[in-house]
């Protein structure tokens, strides 16, 4: 019996497929009642990538009723052959963790607690802060009288957690504000 994911499922171009299991050629016997069903049966399978080290292990995310019910390694990924280390193996728990931050939270100056706010309120207030700071501290010329067009009092740190596409947007956004204090995990 050749056992592999490819043995029973073929990926579609969209990277997602539906699992329908056929239990071919196995005499189920008394274990049938015990193993009454496979939890990922009937789930959607989507290719993702582990968000930890740079091995970039591809993963299969199983989704049922809009919820992630399992994440395991993708055997088609040549580097891992479908394996995952402890961290990758814990991805389902991390995704569905109750500890996730799921709402925009605001902490006022001097306050000892977080307060829920809606996105729009947050974005408006952030934009206002950014503009105030930029207008106040923007440097057009340096001590030598040379044009520098920069904002030194605002920084940005992170993020190797972003996709390439997010990084491109982030870099452009930050430079469009005149930021120079830009750094991320490549240095630490």
């Amino acid at each position: 019996m050749k056992v592999s994911r490819r043995g029973f499922i073929k990926m579609t171009g969209a990277g997602a497929a539906c699992l329908t299991l056929s239990r071919l050629g196995i005499d189920l016997g008394p274990a049938q009642a015990y193993a009454a069903g496979l939890k990922i049966e009937g789930s959607k399978e989507v290719i993702s990538i582990c968000p930890f080290c740079s091995c970039g292990c591809n993963t299969l995310v199983h989704v049922k009723d809009g919820k992630i019910i399992n994440i395991e390694g993708d055997p088609d990924y040549p580097v891992s052959g479908g394996g995952l280390c402890a961290k990758g193996a814990a991805l389902r728990s991390l995704h569905v963790s109750e500890k996730r931050i799921t709402k925009p939270m605001y902490r006022a100056p001097g306050s000892d607690k977080w307060v829920e706010k809606d996105w729009n309120w947050m974005l408006d207030r952030i934009a206002q802060k950014v503009k105030e700071q930029r207008d106040k501290d923007f440097v057009l010329k340096n001590a030598d009288g040379l044009e520098v067009n920069r904002l030194e009092s605002v920084f940005s740190l992170g993020s190797s957690q972003m996709s390439n596409e997010e990084c491109a947007v982030a870099h452009q956004s930050l430079r469009s504000l005149g930021l120079v204090h830009i750094d991320h995990q490549a240095r630490v």
Partner: peptide, 18 residues
């Protein structure tokens, strides 16, 4: 056994990349 019956590797075997 649930995975084996569905023609999948046991999870420990599946996880092991080494």
């Amino acid at each position: 056994i649930d995975r084996i019956q569905a023609n999948l590797l046991p999870m420990c075997v599946k996880s092991c990349a080494m």
